[in-house]
Computed example of a mutant assay.
Amino acid sequence: MVDVQVPTPSAETLRELYPPVEPYDTGMLDVGDGNLVYWEVCGNPQGKPALVVHGGPGSGCTTGVRRYFDPDRYRVVLCDAADWCAWEDAVLSLEPSGSANPYGDRPSMARLGLVRIRSHYFSHGAWLEEGALLRDAGRLAGIPGVLVHGRQDLGSPLHTAWELARAWPTARLTVIHDAGHKGSGTMRHEVIGALDRFAANGTPESG
Rank of each mutant, 00 (worst) to 15 (best):
G98N: 10
R111Q: 15
E95H: 06
R75I: 04
R67I: 01
V91F: 03
W87D: 05
E95T: 04
R75H: 07
G125Q: 06
W87E: 07
R67N: 07
Y68H: 13
G125I: 06
G98S: 11
A126D: 13
H124T: 15
S93K: 11
E88M: 02
S99K: 14
H124D: 12
C85V: 09
S97K: 13
V76A: 06
R67C: 10
H124A: 13
L94W: 11
L92P: 01
P107I: 00
V115R: 09
A110R: 08
D70S: 12
S119A: 13
R118P: 00
M109S: 08
G113I: 02
M109R: 05
D72L: 14
F122T: 05
R73Q: 13
R73V: 06
L78M: 15
Y68T: 02
R118T: 05
A86P: 09
Y68E: 08
M109D: 10
A86E: 15
D80S: 08
E88D: 07
L114M: 05
A82F: 10
L112E: 14
N101L: 02
Y121L: 11
D70Q: 09
R106Q: 04
L78T: 07
D72S: 14
A86Q: 15
D89T: 03
R111H: 08
E88S: 00
S93V: 04
V91T: 09
V115K: 07
P102W: 12
Y103A: 05
A110V: 04
S108A: 15
A126S: 12
A100W: 14
F69Y: 13
R111F: 06
S119R: 13
N101T: 02
Y121K: 06
Y103G: 00
E95I: 05
L114D: 00
D105L: 08
W127L: 10
G113V: 02
Y103N: 03
M109L: 10
A126N: 12
A81P: 02
R67T: 04
W84V: 01
L78C: 11
S97H: 15
Y121W: 13
G98C: 12
P96V: 08
F122D: 08
A86H: 14
Y121F: 09
V77G: 11
D105G: 14
S108F: 15
V115M: 13
V76K: 03
L94C: 10
S93R: 14
S108R: 15
P107Y: 06
A100T: 13
W127F: 14
A110H: 10
P102F: 14
F122W: 12
R106G: 04
R75T: 03
R73Y: 09
E95P: 02
P107F: 02
Y68A: 03
R73L: 10
R73P: 05
S123F: 00
V91Q: 00
E95A: 05
W127E: 07
R106M: 02
A126E: 11
D89V: 00
D70N: 15
S119I: 03
W127I: 03
S99W: 12
M109V: 07
C85N: 15
G125R: 07
D80Y: 01
R111I: 05
D83K: 03
D89I: 00
F69L: 07
A86F: 15
G113A: 04
W87C: 01
Y68N: 09
P71N: 01
L92H: 07
E95D: 07
